[in-house]
Design a protein around this nucleic acid. Structure first.
Length: 402
RNA sequence: GUGGGCGUAGCUCAGUCGGUUAGAGCAUCAGGUUGUGGUUCUGAGGGUCGUGGGUUCGAUCCCCAUCGCCCACCCCA
């Protein structure tokens, strides 16, 4: 027997109903915010991710599904959505046109990791990217949009925000932090490694000993330039104004290299260790990193599988018909009726004549609203017998009126 | 890559301190006399006890290996 690859799942009913519900809800809200759908290829040139996500990140370093195709191109299954969209934005020359554009997307992403709760090798994200808008209100808008989505889906969460600074203030903070870290003795192995790869992440270490050593570490929020600082204040005041509760987490670092200024993460406490359900922020420099004209941008992505456990689905309703025969002679007219009715609504049937009791059981299991049967009496009178499975009302009607 | 846990019916799991026909619940199917569902009653089908090897008179149980799944670390959605 051949099974699906590790970390890759089939999605079947009723699980995929939840998936569709999430996508539909997100899509509707994103449209209200002026975003339009973009679809980019799942396979892209490896260089795209190396340059955008960053060589130093784990994603590029060890988690990419990378291979050579038959034309000897170095390609990758996309590990995240933003890079491809930025590529498309530039390829369409929207950067040169100086247009502001808002896109949303959803689909599979691939990372070669050990699967665990809330982590798959093929997983799905819904996300949105806004290009050309430097105003911090756009950052706030995106956070409020996610808030609207989670409220619509009935998902509880907490929001953490941070500012990562900009090219004016981040580099000097970073060197300051690194020299602080150099002065500290006894950091854990991971942190020693992070000192060079991603020093800010040291602040986020879960090792208690490290945390005590880091008590006096400099924090980026205390070293923001005046622009970043006032933007961060504006962001917070907008969130306050709209009743969006948040916690400033000065140690919040987005995993991907391209973020600047606003960084945020929506977290759920109900889904295991992988608790980030949405994350995003501003990435004003990514477009130029990918050879486009400098264009400010901000976006987010949410992990659909992580959401699916939390979604409260609306109650499903009985829908459609079950149409079946009580005797051999009725099979043909049943089959015809079924095909006719399927032009209008959901119809299930049985190819075998069975007892009324069996058909009712089947109809109930399929969760349709009406059970329709044709037997000897109905054939003789050219009628159908129809029962509403909710109200339990039943009656006959002429077959041509059905 | 590193830890820990687990593989017995379609699903969720019992169980055998190693002993003869391996169990339950749910699900499925068939019945409870004439054509009435979601509740109930009766019955049936369905398992090479993950795979391979070893120990033993005898292994689903003990040992080794292997594969797979889950959870956690790392990192992220």
């Amino acid at each position: 027997m051949i099974n699906a690859l590790r970390g890759m799942k089939d999605t079947l009913f009723p699980h995929n109903e939840v998936y569709m519900y999430v996508i539909d809800t997100c899509t509707k809200i994103a449209r209200n915010y002026g975003f339009s759908l973009i679809e980019t290829p799942i396979l892209e040139e490896t260089a795209l991710f190396k340059r955008s996500v960053g060589e130093s990140s784990d994603i590029v370093g060890k988690e990419m599904y990378q291979f050579r195709d038959k034309g000897d191109n170095d390609v990758c299954l996309r590990p995240e959505g933003t890079a491809g969209i930025v590529r498309a934005f530039i390829q369409e020359k929207y950067d040169k046109a100086g247009l502001s554009k808002r896109f949303f997307y959803h689909g599979p992403m691939f990372r070669y990791e050990r699967p665990q709760k809330g982590r798959l090798r093929q997983f799905h994200q819904f996300g949105a990217e806004s290009f050309g808008e430097a105003n911090v209100r756009e950052d706030a808008t995106i956070i409020l949009m996610i808030k609207a989505i989670f409220e619509a889906l009935g998902i509880g969460y907490t929001l953490e925000i941070n500012s990562l600074g900009c090219p004016a203030c981040m580099p000097s903070y970073r060197t300051g932090l690194v020299s602080f870290l150099e002065s500290v003795e006894g950091l854990c192995e991971d942190c020693e490694r992070r000192k060079t790869t991603n020093p800010i992440r040291v602040l986020d270490c879960k090792n208690e000993h490290c945390q005590t050593l880091l008590q006096n570490a400099p924090l980026i929020v205390d070293h923001l330039c005046s622009t970043c600082k006032s933007d961060f204040e504006t962001l917070k005041s907008i969130l306050d104004h709209f009743g969006m509760a948040y916690r400033v987490n000065p140690k919040l670092v987005r995993g991907l290299d391209y973020y600047s200024k606003t960084a945020f993460e929506f977290v759920s406490s109900e889904i295991g260790a992988q608790s980030a359900i949405a994350g995003g922020g501003r990435y004003d420099r990514l477009v130029e990193f990918l050879d486009g004209k400098p264009t400010p941008a901000v976006g987010f992505a949410m992990g659909i599988e992580r959401l699916m456990d939390l979604v409260k689905m609306p109650e499903s309703k009985r829908e459609g018909y079950y149409i079946a025969a009580l005797c051999e002679e009725a099979l043909e007219s049943v089959y015809t009726l079924v095909q006719q009715k399927r032009a209008i609504t959901k119809v299930l049937t049985s190819y075998e004549p069975k007892s009324l009791k069996n058909h009712l059981k089947a109809a109930d299991k399929f969760y349709v609203k009406f059970c329709v049967c044709i037997g000897e009496d109905e054939l003789a009178n050219q009628t159908v017998w129809i029962k509403d499975l909710e109200s339990k009302e039943e009656h006959h009607m002429p077959i041509e009126n059905f």
